[in-house]
Amino acid sequence: MQRVNMIMAESPGLITICLLGYLLSAECTVFLDHENANKILNRPKRYNSGKLEEFVQGNLERECMEEKCSFEEAREVFENTERTTEFWKQYVDGDQCESNPCLNGGSCKDDINSYECWCPFGFEGKNCELDVTCNIKNGRCEQFCKNSADNKVVCSCTEGYRLAENQKSCEPAVPFPCGRVSVSQTSKLTRAETVFPDVDYVNSTEAETILDNITQSTQSFNDFTRVVGGEDAKPGQFPWQVVLNGKVDAFCGGSIVNEKWIVTAAHCVETGVKITVVAGEHNIEETEHTEQKRNVIRIIPHHNYNAAINKYNHDIALLELDEPLVLNSYVTPICIADKEYTNIFLKFGSGYVSGWGRVFHKGRSALVLQYLRVPLVDRATCLRSTKFTIYNNMFCAGFHEGGRDSCQGDSGGPHVTEVEGTSFLTGIISWGEECAMKGKYGIYTKVSRYVNWIKEKTKLT
């Protein structure tokens, strides 16, 4: 034993070699072989497995989906700052455009905790909710729209109204504003409101030439003092309507412009014939205590009207009353817009006519005020429907199939267009061939041609 100890002390290297040989010859039971080890760690190889990531292109799944990435790591994937920024906006807080917040056709661009709407022409605001041009839906104005110097929408209202708090709607500024039905039992019968379409306001006024200088022999019209197929109006439903009495009662109609003036057809009036105007009328054979009678003290036909040349060209006249009318729910003026808007309103496509005229061709006159909704007829169809001249200051309205029309005794009465609950004068009943005849239409004086003249002559002093 002493000898062994001496050998170990003198030859430590020998001992180490012996131990190493023993270990190498022993069977290893701690580690699995290569094949079995792979069965336990069965993990798919990654895209760049075996390579240094710093030297390969980034992978979106590896960089940002398996674990949260930084902007720089995302930049490695896209290799483009702009594309990385677009991805980053949604990656950080989701897609803010998912709810489609942009209105009126706006395009949404996502941002971090926010979004941006790219608005089409005519709109602005956070969600493109603000109209900035009158060309689109009248700028959301209830009545009139004008573009300011910086191309912003400025709404306005006709006389007797003021802008509401929203700067879009119009509200009454006087007790009985024009064009409004205020009798409670008839307010439910107000005709369907007309909503502004998209309009090209630059070209809204037709490029028409008034044929002022045409000389033409007097034409022989049949029954051209021209509501057939209409309905009984309720008291106060058309408070701007008046009836004219002269040699015979209810020979023509008219509309209240203001307390002192009536507008009617020029062919209705004769110099030297006494005319009485009755406002607030409903049943011409009954006294309903809503009527107001006034005498006409002055007749002003349009300066281009000449019955000797043509009885229905420039067929418009103004009547001055001896005493002002007292405005109330049964006696209310009709609204008159400017030339541009009167023309736009007419193009809405349908209007209402009213009167006490004959209820059928050569038949009896109506006792109760009649009204009828009539569609506008395109000019080409209008011209083809008659052998008589249709001037540019006239328009056609009615039904091709016949059966409904204005008729004798309705002449001078109103053709009105309702705009968001307020009625505007767009025409004056003038003439036609018979009444409600198939293929024939009622012919009306186009008020847009005469609004400046009306307003100039009827100013209240």
Score class of each variant (00 low, 15 high):
residue 10 E to W: 14
residue 13 G to Q: 11
residue 20 L to P: 02
residue 21 G to F: 13
residue 22 Y to E: 03
residue 28 C to W: 01
residue 36 N to Q: 11
residue 39 K to A: 11
residue 46 R to F: 07
residue 49 S to R: 08
residue 51 K to D: 10
residue 58 G to A: 14
residue 61 E to I: 07
residue 69 C to H: 04
residue 70 S to Q: 14
residue 72 E to Q: 10
residue 76 E to A: 04
residue 78 F to Y: 15
residue 90 Q to S: 15
residue 92 V to G: 15
residue 101 P to D: 01
residue 103 L to E: 08
residue 111 D to K: 03
residue 113 N to L: 07
residue 115 Y to D: 00
residue 115 Y to W: 05
residue 115 Y to P: 01
residue 116 E to G: 03
residue 136 I to P: 14
residue 137 K to Y: 06
residue 137 K to N: 14
residue 137 K to H: 14
residue 144 F to Q: 02
residue 153 V to F: 08
residue 154 V to P: 04
residue 156 S to A: 11
residue 162 R to C: 04
residue 163 L to M: 05
residue 166 N to F: 02
residue 170 C to D: 01
residue 171 E to K: 10
residue 174 V to R: 09
residue 179 G to H: 00
residue 181 V to R: 15
residue 181 V to I: 11
residue 182 S to F: 08
residue 188 K to H: 07
residue 196 F to L: 14
residue 196 F to T: 08
residue 196 F to Y: 14
residue 199 V to R: 11
residue 200 D to K: 12
residue 208 E to G: 05
residue 211 L to E: 06
residue 212 D to L: 06
residue 214 I to G: 07
residue 219 Q to G: 14
residue 219 Q to S: 04
residue 219 Q to L: 07
residue 219 Q to C: 05
residue 225 T to K: 14
residue 232 D to R: 15
residue 235 P to Q: 09
residue 245 N to F: 05
residue 249 D to M: 09
residue 256 I to Q: 01
residue 260 K to Q: 05
residue 261 W to I: 02
residue 261 W to C: 01
residue 267 H to Y: 02
residue 280 G to Y: 02
residue 281 E to H: 13
residue 288 E to K: 07
residue 289 H to C: 08
residue 290 T to A: 05
residue 296 V to W: 01
residue 297 I to E: 05
residue 299 I to C: 05
residue 305 Y to N: 03
residue 308 A to R: 12
residue 313 N to E: 08
residue 322 D to R: 03
residue 326 V to P: 02
residue 334 I to D: 00
residue 336 I to P: 00
residue 336 I to W: 00
residue 337 A to D: 01
residue 338 D to I: 03
residue 344 I to C: 04
residue 345 F to C: 02
residue 346 L to M: 06
residue 347 K to T: 11
residue 353 V to L: 05
residue 364 R to T: 13
residue 365 S to Q: 15
residue 372 L to H: 14
residue 375 P to M: 13
residue 376 L to N: 04
residue 378 D to R: 06
residue 378 D to L: 04
residue 380 A to E: 13
residue 384 R to F: 04
residue 385 S to D: 14
residue 390 I to K: 06
residue 391 Y to S: 13
residue 401 E to W: 14
residue 403 G to I: 14
residue 408 Q to F: 15
residue 411 S to T: 14
residue 412 G to C: 06
residue 414 P to M: 14
residue 418 E to W: 05
residue 428 I to G: 01
residue 430 S to I: 11
residue 431 W to F: 11
residue 442 G to L: 07
residue 447 V to D: 00
residue 450 Y to N: 01
residue 452 N to V: 05
residue 461 T to M: 09
